[in-house]
Design a binder for these strands. Structure first.
Lengths: 140, 140
DNA sequence: TATTGTTATACTCTATAACTATA
DNA sequence: TATAGTTATAGAGTATAACAATA
């Protein structure tokens, strides 16, 4: 009842980091969610809209508008999956790859500033701990 | 571009913890935000609605409905501040204190499960690091 | 029948503007 | 003139339901 709940700390810091990231990504016309999609498509092969939504906890009906916009910006391409003509195979365009590379530099810089008060060993410990929690939560 | 952004990890874990907490608090008819308000009023003396909102990044127009509900539940009391009759001095009722005590046990249990995979030294390190980041961010 | 993508609609949450009472 | 609280309204974001195309 006396010490602040862990949830406060986690939520607040996540909010701060997201805000900072959002401000930095605005130069590219991207939201943090947009960036997440580009990052995902840059790392994995073609994904369907459903798969992409599942990975990012975004409802499939919301994926439509998100991809619409990124497609309009020329960053993402929709192609019909020949193996299953219901699916759209999503890929990064050449420009999408370039924007991802440039914006990831900006995102990394924001993270760097965010962790400025944390020395290298503590950072490693932080990352390890958060990933351990993630793994633990995944297996439930 | 290859490793997942730190923001992903932070936001995702904060979301998971908030969901778990929300599910646990539902037994008390409270949301995580409700709990935060009770916790704040339990720790500090009387607060005005404006002060409460500022501390929790809640717009003053949204505080009204939140306090309305907690008052209706008999957990929070509005009193006119004699020093400034525009202000409402918010305090916990007796029942509010009891519900805070009971629900804080539930919240602590959720946090405990959330950190189950993290041993004591790593927990201490995690808390210290997160608070260091918080302090660093506060001074900007 | 089930699933992917789509659209339209409803719902929730929050912000904005305007009002009152106090200062 | 500024501020605390309140209300009503509008806007953004998300979920729900229904549909067409494909499996």
């Amino acid at each position: 009842m006396t010490e602040p709940p862990l949830g406060f700390l986690m939520s607040h810091l996540a909010d701060v980091l997201r805000e900072r990231t959002a401000k930095s990504l605005a130069d590219f016309g991207l939201s943090p969610r947009d960036y997440g999609i580009l990052w995902r498509l840059g790392g994995h092969g073609p994904l369907s809209q459903r798969e992409l939504g599942d990975l990012h906890h975004i409802d499939r009906t919301s994926v439509v508008a998100l991809v619409d916009r990124l497609e309009l910006m020329g960053l993402v391409a929709r192609a019909v999956d020949p193996a299953d003509r219901r699916r759209h195979a999503l890929t990064l365009t050449e420009r999408g790859r370039a924007v991802l590379a440039a914006s990831s530099v900006a995102v990394t810089r924001v993270e760097e500033e965010f962790l400025a008060a944390v020395d290298a060993p503590a950072r490693q410990s932080l990352l390890a701990t958060l990933n351990a929690v993630l793994d633990h939560e995944a297996g439930r």
